[in-house]
């Protein structure tokens, strides 16, 4: 099983994508399935770090949090652009945040979440010291952002991945 389908989740996603791009029919299931298996073998050749998900049940909570946060920060950033940054009062800045998270998959997910959310941009992560350089569009308080990243996202990701 694991030799024939090394990455079942990747293969499954590829099959779903194939079916989304074409019409659902038996022929496309067979063709897409064959392609997904071959692509799964190709992924195995790259030997990526296999993610170990400890707690699947927290994933919906994470996605709901991302969903609401993206809507909220969309409104906030759109308002800041419209009002010209509270009429020149807005200050952006860099925040250095020490992270305890070490799992590479979890870090990649955290980077994608923080960058996809308007208002925060992941600039650099130093893997030796675990120090993240984050740029915040509307920086009122450094400590508040450290608190948000460490307690809101990092704690949940650590619970899921580690």
């Amino acid at each position: 099983m694991s030799r024939l389908i090394p990455y079942p989740f990747v293969s499954f996603l590829l099959l779903v994508m194939w079916l989304m791009l074409t019409r659902f029919s038996l022929g496309h299931v067979v063709l897409g399935g064959a392609l997904a298996l071959v692509a799964g073998r190709a992924v195995a050749a790259l030997q990526p770090a296999r993610p170990r998900l400890r707690r699947w049940r927290l994933m919906p909570k994470l996605f709901w949090m991302i969903f609401t946060d993206i809507i909220r920060s969309n409104i906030a950033v759109a308002w800041l652009i419209l009002t010209n940054g509270r009429h020149g009062q807005r200050k952006s800045g860099f925040v250095l945040i020490p992270l305890k998270l070490r799992d590479p998959n979890a870090l990649a997910l955290l980077a994608c979440i923080l960058t996809a959310t308007p208002g925060t941009a992941w600039l650099e992560y130093d893997s030796d010291e675990g120090m993240l350089t984050l740029h915040v569009f509307d920086l009122l308080d450094d400590e508040q952002w450290r608190h948000i990243v460490q307690n809101r996202y990092e704690a949940l990701l650590m619970e899921i991945f580690e």
């Binding site: 969309n74 759109a78 652009i81 952006s92 959310t117 308007p118 941009a121 740029h135």
Partner: peptide, 21 residues
């Protein structure tokens, strides 16, 4: 925002509006 903001690090936030919602 991308056209009007002053520094590059501010401008990097503007396109995420268009790419998210």
């Amino acid at each position: 925002g991308f056209a009007r903001l002053a520094s590059f690090y501010d401008r990097i936030h503007a396109p995420t509006l268009g790419t998210s919602w």
